[in-house]
Amino acid sequence: MSEKPFTGTAFYAFLKEHKLMGARCPTCGAIYAPPRPFCPACFNAELEWVELSGAGRLASYSVIVIAPTAMIEAGYGREHPYCSGVVELAEGPCISAQILGVDVAHPETIAIGTPVKVAFIERGEGEAQKTFLGFEVVP
């Protein structure tokens, strides 16, 4: 469905179009998200893009208080902690993302297994604008 190479650049370009894309191996059926250029399960090197449903569940998480520079610049830090997590997608693979719609003031209330759906987080202005992968709790 796309001729784009299986690169991080392509993954984030799709994200900017609000598409969560993975790679599918036509030989063994394995799905990879993040996408890969090469199937480690069967060593096939000809993969294809597949759009993912964006549904998943929270597999693990942390509420981060001491933030890296990029997140401080996005307004987070000691006074505004945020949640990052690993999401197990409905299609099987797991991926890292920021988790929205959780109570970061009470991290013990965040439950592993909670259903989440994809969210697209826009940061930066103009040319520097970039879309980041997020998931939000399904109400």
């Binding site: 693990s60 942390s62 990029a70 690993v86 920021q98």
Partner: peptide
Amino acid sequence: VTYETPAGFTFPGLYASMATAYLH
């Protein structure tokens, strides 16, 4: 740095996510 740190993960954050998985 392509697929983990853009999620906001720090090093303590990644081990902390293993900790929540372990506790659970």
